[in-house]
């Protein structure tokens, strides 16, 4: 699966993407390796840990999320992953993941696993649309061919979000 991140994202965006299940721990490491860090954290101990992490070692990989959290706590002490600012980042990352579903070979489960964390953190935001219904009973074995309704739901959500933006929403 192609990485959702390009490498130039702010660490807060990476954290929120991870919190909502849009990316995995391995994606965090991949981001750190492609990221051109500014001086403010290029030498940070947690950032360097991410850069040097061996993503093939499951034990160390499991710690990536925690190191990213520590980095952000130090760099942006006022940042809350449930704030309005975070919600807007979550919306952007969510929509980015939906777009990749339409273009790339992303499994339905990689989209559907975002539903519960988003509902929980951002109190059932309207930009989530009716993704839950389209994801009902989707598990790791569900194929794209089995889920044409998911594609329809994603197209509808993307259209609704574009429309809302055009109307000055959010």
């Amino acid at each position: 699966m192609k990485s959702l991140l390009e490498g130039n994202e702010d660490p807060r965006s990476v954290l929120i993407a991870r919190e909502i299940g849009a990316i995995s721990d391995a994606d965090i490491i991949n981001w750190a390796n492609r990221h051109a860090a500014p001086q403010s954290y290029a030498e940070d101990i947690d950032y360097l840990w991410l850069v040097r992490c061996n993503s093939r070692n499951a034990t160390t990989l499991g710690r990536a999320h925690g190191h990213l959290r520590s980095l952000i706590k130090r760099l942006f002490p006022d940042f809350s992953d449930t704030s309005m600012e975070a919600s807007e980042i979550a919306r952007e990352m969510f929509l980015r993941r939906l777009r990749t579903y339409l273009k790339d070979d992303v499994d339905p489960f990689h989209v559907c696993r975002m539903v519960a964390p988003i509902e929980g953190r951002y109190e059932f935001p309207h930009w989530l649309g009716d993704l839950y219904s389209a994801c009902d009973w989707t598990d790791e074995h569900t194929t794209r061919e089995q889920a044409p309704h998911l594609r329809d739901a994603i197209q509808r959500i993307l259209a609704d979000n574009t429309e809302n933006l055009a109307n000055g929403g959010f």
Binding site: G62, F109, R113
Partner: peptide, 17 residues
């Protein structure tokens, strides 16, 4: 288990209400 290095292919995820 994750902290102990067990690789999950998917973390706990809501599948059905």
């Amino acid at each position: 288990a994750k902290a102990a290095g067990v690789p999950f292919t998917a973390p706990p995820t809501l599948v059905h209400r």
